[in-house]
Structures are given as C-alpha cells and as structure tokens.
C-alpha cells in the first residue's frame, strides 16, 4: 500500500517538473546536441555546411593555440585551488570565530564581489591596475616606490597572476559561504574535547576541522575546477586574452574561433573538447580525493 502511494507521488512530481525539464532541454541539452552535430562539419555560417567526420577533432589535437589556452586554464586552476580555497577557508574560520564581532557585515563584505557583474569587476580592477591613475600606482607613488610597480596586465610573465588576484577577489565569497555551512556541521564538542586534551587552535583545525570538512571541500574543489574551465568574461573584459595570447583561455579561444574566424564547426569541436577535459579533471579530482578517504 505504502509502495503504491509513493509511486503516484513520484509520477506527479515528474509531471510538475516537466516544464522545467523542457526548459532545461531547450536551453542546455538541445544546444549541446546541436554543437556536437556541428563539430563534425565545416560550417562557417550561412547555408553551406558539409560533414567532415572527425577532421575538426584531429585538428584540435594538433592545435597549439588550444593547448596553450588549456595550459592557461590549468595555471588559473592551480592558483585558484591554492589561494581561493585557502583564503575562503581562512575567512570562513574567521567569520565563524566567537571572538569576531559584526559577523553579518563581514559575511556581506566578503560575498559582495560575487554579486557584481564581471564587467563591473573588470572596470574596478582596470582602475586599480592602471599605470597612470591606478590605485596601486597612486599608493606606490606616495611611498616613493612608483618604479617598483609592475605592468600588471601588460607583462606577459605576470598577467595570469594579476588576473588570478581579480578572480580570487571576485569569487572567494561563494566558497566562504559553502565552507561556513560546512563548518556549522562540525560538532563543537569534538573541538572542545581536543582543547581539553591540550590541542591548540591550529592543531584542532588541522586534525579535526579539516578532516570533518572533507565532503564540503570536495564540493568546493569540484566547483573550483569546473569554474576555472569556464573562465571567460572577466578575462575578456580585462585583457581580451592578451598581451597577445598570454592570458587566453579555452572558452575565449572557442569564442574567437566562432566569432572572429567564423569557424563555427571547429569552434563547436573546441567547446566539446573543453567539456571533455573539464569532465576528466573533475572526475580525476574526485577519484583522487575519494581514494584518500578510502585509505
């Protein structure tokens, strides 16, 4: 009797969510299928379209520009995993700490950049980084260090680090919120017991809080990896992938192939390549983290 009641409920729920499934299919599934289809053609827009098998994917394997862009994504990923999640964890601990006052203000202040449009973020940081009237240059000038200020967005050697600072600032708030939720689930009695056994704050954080936060950290790492593979708007607005191709990332590379070179077939192959690489990275990270858990 109970079993049949659940069946009816499930069916109705599917009916109720059908409109959303349709919308999801129209917005995501169908375009993805279309992109897969186009990736096997030489379509350059207009009426002419020809099936060319896996030629685009063969080209993708040998395309240095794509792999350099992917390498840049990986550089961002390493910086984000270390610094964005690191700072987010520290901020989360800070905001959760009993000694900190005005917790609501701190939470909002840290989360604020996450709600700003990427183009607003880019505008703010253009002003911060600008060599002539930038905030950093102005401060450096006051203390007589104007010659030491680097060309944040014009030096190919440091441009990825400069952009990573912006991205860390922009998105750290999201991870702080997730990690704070995870911290709230850590049983405080364990911390208190550790303190009574003589552990200091650092030791109890390292040996109790971090292991108990592992499921939350796995979620953050997964989100961070997939986020780094989707990087586009902030970088596009700040450097356009430059100087030259020094800060080019795969999403921007696909965009350029489509809208600058009009190679829509190849751009679709690049996008599908991006999805596959993202999946590999996410699955690999989960496998590594879960294996450690099993050990």
């Amino acid at each position: 009797m109970k079993k049949s009641a659940i069946k009816v409920k499930t069916g109705r729920i599917y009916l109720y969510i059908l409109p959303f499934i349709i919308m999801f299919a129209v917005a995501y599934i169908i375009p993805l299928c279309v992109a897969i289809g186009i990736s096997f053609t030489n379509w350059r827009g207009g009426k002419n379209i020809k099936f060319i098998g896996i030629d685009n994917y063969m080209k993708l394997f040998q395309d240095q520009g794509f792999w350099i862009s992917f390498l840049n994504n990986l550089k961002f990923m390493v910086l984000m995993l270390i610094f964005q999640l690191g700072f987010a964890f520290l901020f989360a601990l800070f905001v959760q700490s009993k000694r900190v006052k005005l917790k609501g203000f701190h939470r909002r202040a840290i989360f604020l950049p996450s709600v700003l449009s990427s183009f607003v973020v880019a505008l703010i940081w253009q002003i911060v980084y600008n060599k002539n009237f930038g905030l950093i240059s102005a401060v450096a000038e006051k203390i007589g260090l104007e010659d030491k200020v680097p060309l944040w967005l014009d030096d190919p050697k440091i441009v990825i680090n400069s952009l990573a600072i912006v991205l860390i600032w922009q998105f750290v708030g999201q991870y702080v919120i997730i990690l704070m939720a995870g911290l709230q689930n850590v049983d405080q009695s364990l911390m208190e017991a550790a303190m009574m056994d003589g552990a200091n704050t650092f030791q109890s954080t390292l040996h109790i809080t971090l292991p108990l936060m592992k499921p939350t950290l796995i979620v953050c790492i997964t989100l961070c990896i997939s986020g780094c593979m989707k990087l586009f708007d902030t970088i596009y607005a700040l450097t356009g992938g430059g100087p030259g191709s020094s800060s080019m990332v795969t999403a921007m590379y696909a965009y350029n192939q489509a809208f600058k070179l009009k190679q829509f077939g190849y751009a679709s192959a690049v996008s599908i390549g991006m999805i596959i690489l993202s999946l590999i990275l996410v699955l690999a990270s989960r496998k590594i983290l879960n294996r450690k858990e099993e050990v």
Binding site: G244, S246, L261
Partner: peptide, 20 residues
C-alpha cells in the same frame, strides 16, 4: 583573410610586448 589577420594582430601585440 580572417585566420591570417588573427595571427597577425595578436602577433603585433606579442612583438610589442616582447612575447615573440
């Protein structure tokens, strides 16, 4: 042609910033 132009325009920026 668009593909040559892309290499050329990015390349000009690369030589001006010392990448190439």
């Amino acid at each position: 042609p668009a593909s040559v132009k892309d290499v050329y325009q990015r390349g000009l920026q690369e030589i001006l910033t010392g990448v190439k």
